[in-house]
């Protein structure tokens, strides 16, 4: 059974298919790393190190950018990600 779902080969995040525990080792799709914190089902986990301001890539597309450095195995969500365009005023 897969623990995570990588939607596109160029993605730097994956979706957790079940709740992942802190320290849990994920070995799948040629990747091996440990979760650095517990992450709920349906939420994203970094599968590569992501630098500050670097794009968050899901589906092979840029869904926002990192607002802090994100280490592989971390929970990726609103505390460390921001959309590139927040409101119609910025389009």
């Amino acid at each position: 059974m897969r623990k995570i779902l990588i939607l596109h080969s160029s993605d730097n995040v994956a979706v957790c298919l079940s709740e992942i525990g802190n320290g849990e080792v994920i070995e799948q799709d040629g990747k091996k790393f440990s979760a650095l914190e517990s992450i709920p089902r349906g939420h994203k986990i970094a599968i590569a190190n992501i630098e500050l301001n670097e794009g968050i890539i899901k589906y092979g597309e840029r869904m926002g950018h990192a607002i802090s450095r994100i280490t592989a195995g971390s929970h990726v969500h609103v505390h460390n990600v921001l959309g590139d365009r927040l409101s119609s005023g910025e389009v």
Partner: peptide, 8 residues
Amino acid sequence: GGLSTLEE
């Protein structure tokens, strides 16, 4: 549910 941005 885990969605972080409007783009996503």
